[in-house]
């Protein structure tokens, strides 16, 4: 378990998967020997929320002791928005850049790479629909709840349009790439696609976990209080 008096640099050297997390909290590299508490103060971040997010990332069974406060709910929404923005601005282009290079570099027109590309586009569109739902309906609704707007709970949006878990679809896509790729393909680019998909899958899983374990219980509480 990671605590507030630990050095941020040591924690990250040990758990490199946390690199994207600090990026989403907008923490820049160069934090020297500072403790987590110190870094959070400098960046005006809620230390308890920061610790909850990183502990949830590295430990499947982590449970936060106290439910999120209203301020923490707003900060969590901001973190999730940053996650979505990074998925759209850097992770999608990253996978696509490698896939494009893979398609144009393969010796002859490689059918299986085309199939991988088609399914990636399908998954991407589905994720974009989910992100749009979050940005346009779910997050504004949560913001209204947080600001104590009267009757906000009555405008609860319908459930998300995403049907099958997207992280599992990416898992399937990744295993197709690994098991059934045929013909000539640049192996370096294949690795790049594989790892980019793996990172995306992992980030989406974490995103969902933050929603399930931290955000949704707090939102349910806010709704109950508002209805009273």
């Amino acid at each position: 378990m990671i605590l507030s008096d630990m050095k941020l640099s040591e924690v990250i050297l040990q758990h490199y998967v946390l690199m994207p997390v600090i990026r989403r909290f907008n923490i820049k590299l160069g934090f020297g020997e500072k403790t987590i508490k110190r870094v959070c103060e400098e960046y005006n971040l809620d230390t308890d929320l920061f610790l909850a997010v990183i502990n949830l990332y590295i430990q499947q069974t982590y449970v936060m002791e106290h439910p999120l406060t209203v301020g923490q709910v707003a900060a969590t929404v901001e973190y999730l928005q940053n996650t979505n923005n990074l998925i759209m601005q850097s992770q999608f282009p990253n996978v696509e850049r490698h896939l494009r290079a893979l398609m144009s570099n393969s010796f002859e027109h490689n059918k299986t790479i085309g199939v991988i590309n088609n399914f990636f586009q399908e998954i991407k569109n589905e994720l974009l629909a989910g992100i749009e739902y979050d940005n346009k309906q779910r997050f504004p609704y949560i913001e209204r709840l947080c600001s104590g707007e009267p009757e906000a709970w009555a405008q609860k949006p319908a459930d998300s349009p995403v049907k099958e878990p997207v992280d599992e679809k990416i898992f399937d896509l990744r295993s197709m790439l690994m098991k059934y790729l045929t013909g000539e393909a640049d192996q370096n680019l294949c690795y790049a696609v594989f790892f980019a998909l793996f990172t995306l899958e992992n980030d989406i899983r974490q995103y969902n976990k933050i929603c399930e374990r931290l955000l949704n219980p707090a939102v349910n509480n806010l709704e109950k209080n508002a209805e009273r």
Binding site: F119, E168, K169, S175, M176, Y180
Partner: peptide
């Protein structure tokens, strides 16, 4: 096949030439 989703079935079939996309 270690497949988790319905889409995974379609992916497998397309990768292995059982259906054409």
């Amino acid at each position: 096949l270690g497949i988790k989703t319905v889409s995974g079935f379609t992916m497998y079939a397309a990768m292995n030439g059982l259906i054409s996309l």
